[in-house]
């Protein structure tokens, strides 16, 4: 009941406390250390698992973990092939796989009880720790930004600089509304990474918030008879939201991956396809 410890400042303080990053630096030059550490640890976990699987691959009779990895890989490959058709791109599939696995793992941190890790680290002396990297807008916008830069790169690579500029000039309304076209296309192109990053951030942030609110149920109640009602309710609600959230984190990771593939696939479409 670590919520009780914080309840001196009320629920708002509790929530705000949980939504503050462990960071160093000021203003723009702030590094959210919790976000970086957790995401890098999860990344290291993926790479470690990948190396373990990759080191002794069984062509004949794969077993256990390799089967699972192959299944995921096949799934991602199918998604990429569905969007890209015959167009060959060696980068997209590993990119999509990275997005799926990494985002899913980072989202998964949401399922860890909200007070557990902060409470443990509080004992070590850390005031704030946000466990879920995807509830940090920097993470989601960073990935969306990389995807955006890649779409720009592939747009120019496939269509050429002239083709890319033409896309801004003559799309979507034809050559008579060039100023409108520029604005429309710019908004469209910028909306893609923004919506991509904000969607994931929003979902995870809201999910985390719901967990915090559920955690507040019995935390807000003082020790006594009321706890007998609120505590079971909290358990039931927490379990329900947990189960539902398994679906959400998977869905959000999947959506992020699919949209990444789709945006890059659109970047690969030549002028004639428009």
């Amino acid at each position: 009941m670590s919520a009780a410890e914080n309840s001196g400042g009320g629920s708002v303080d509790y929530i705000q406390h949980h939504l503050t990053n462990w960071s160093v630096g000021e203003g723009f030059w702030t590094l959210n250390l919790d976000t970086l550490i957790v995401s890098l640890m999860l990344g290291a976990l993926i790479v470690f698992a990948a190396m373990r699987v990759g080191r002794n691959l069984q062509v004949g009779a794969p077993s256990g973990f390799q089967n699972f990895v192959e299944m995921v890989l096949d799934f991602v490959d199918k998604q990429v092939k569905d969007s890209f058709g015959g167009k060959d791109n060696k980068l997209i599939a590993p990119l999509a796989l990275t997005v799926l696995v990494w985002v899913w793992l980072m989202n998964f941190m949401d399922l860890i009880p909200v007070d557990l890790v902060p409470a443990i680290l509080h004992g070590v002396g850390l005031e704030h720790f946000k466990l879920v990297p995807t509830t940090d807008i920097n993470t989601t916008l960073a990935m969306a930004g990389v995807v955006f830069l890649l779409t720009v790169y592939y747009n120019i690579k496939v269509k050429g600089v002239v083709g890319y500029v033409k896309m801004f000039l003559f799309h979507p309304f034809g050559k008579f509304l060039i100023p409108v076209n520029i604005i429309m296309t710019a908004i469209e192109e910028l909306a893609k990474p923004l919506s991509l990053g904000l969607r994931l951030f929003g979902n995870m942030f809201a999910g985390e918030l719901v967990f915090l609110l559920i955690a507040l149920l019995s935390g807000a109640a003082t020790l006594g008879a009321a706890l007998l009602i609120w505590f079971p309710l909290q358990v039931v609600l927490d379990l329900g939201w947990l189960l539902f959230h398994i679906l959400i984190i998977t869905l959000q990771a999947f959506i992020f991956m699919v949209l990444t593939i789709v945006y890059l696939g659109m970047a690969h479409a030549s002028e004639d396809d428009h």
Partner: peptide, 8 residues
Amino acid sequence: ITVTLIAQ
């Protein structure tokens, strides 16, 4: 949005 974005 901070330099974390770039790091990420």
